[in-house]
Simulated assay, not measured.
Amino acid sequence: MTNTSTLARDGGRRASAPGRRRADRPVRRTRLPVWSIPYILLIPGLVVIGALLLYPMVQVGIMAFQKVGLVQISGKKPATWVGTENFEKIFDNEIFWSALRNTVVFAVIAVSLTLIVGTAVGVLLNKLGRKMSTFVVVGIMFAWAVPPVAQGIIWRWLFDAEAGVINWALNLLPDWLSSALFGRATWTDEPWLNDAWSIYMVLIITVVWASFPFIAVSVLAGLRGIPAELYEAAKVDGSSAWRTFWKITFPLLKPVFAVLTVLSIIWDFKVFSQLYVLMGGPANREAFNLSIFSYAEAFRSPPKMGSGAAIAVVLTVILLVVTAVYVRQLVKQEEM
Rank of each mutant, 00 (worst) to 15 (best):
A145F: 02
R13V: 15
W267D: 14
N167S: 15
D195T: 09
G69L: 00
E85T: 13
I140R: 05
T186H: 11
S307F: 02
K76N: 09
F272G: 15
S294I: 03
F182A: 13
G281S: 06
L173M: 15
A258K: 07
V219S: 09
G129C: 13
T316E: 00
Q274I: 01
F65S: 08
G308H: 00
L172E: 11
R14W: 14
K89D: 13
N93A: 12
W157P: 07
I226N: 05
G281F: 04
G280A: 04
V208H: 06
A180D: 12
V277I: 14
A8P: 10
T249S: 09
L193Q: 00
A110S: 15
L52E: 01
S301P: 06
W168V: 06
K304N: 15
R300W: 12
I265P: 00
W168Y: 15
W187I: 11
K235M: 01
A17W: 04
G75K: 03
A23T: 12
V317M: 12
N194M: 10
A228P: 03
V58K: 07
S211H: 08
V108W: 04
V217T: 15
L100Y: 11
A23N: 11
P78N: 07
V68C: 07
V47W: 00
S179H: 05
F159T: 10
W242K: 12
W35S: 05
K235R: 14
T323N: 10
A241P: 06
L330Q: 14
P33W: 09
S294V: 04
A228W: 11
A169I: 10
D92M: 09
K131L: 13
T80K: 09
Y200I: 02
D92Y: 02
A163F: 05
V325E: 03
W197M: 12
V121A: 13
V271K: 04
Y231L: 06
G118L: 00
I109S: 03
T4A: 12
N93C: 07
G19F: 07
A150F: 08
V137A: 10
A296L: 08
R224T: 10
R101Y: 14
P191G: 10
M57D: 03
L172K: 09
I311V: 08
F299H: 07
V137I: 15
A23S: 13
G61F: 04
G83R: 02
V262P: 00
I166L: 01
S301K: 12
L173F: 02
V34T: 09
K332T: 05
V236M: 11
S36P: 00
E286I: 08
V219F: 05
I62F: 08
Y200N: 02
S198P: 01
Y276A: 11
G122C: 02
F96L: 08
K332M: 09
Q59T: 00
T186F: 12
R243I: 03
W192P: 03
R224C: 04
R31F: 05
T119L: 09
V111Q: 06
S307K: 10
D189M: 14
E229Y: 12
V202F: 01
I95W: 10
M336L: 06
T261E: 14
M1R: 13
P56I: 02
R28Q: 02
A210Y: 02
Y276W: 13
V111R: 08
V71Q: 05
K67V: 10
F299C: 05
S74M: 11
A150H: 00
E297I: 05
P33F: 07
W176R: 14
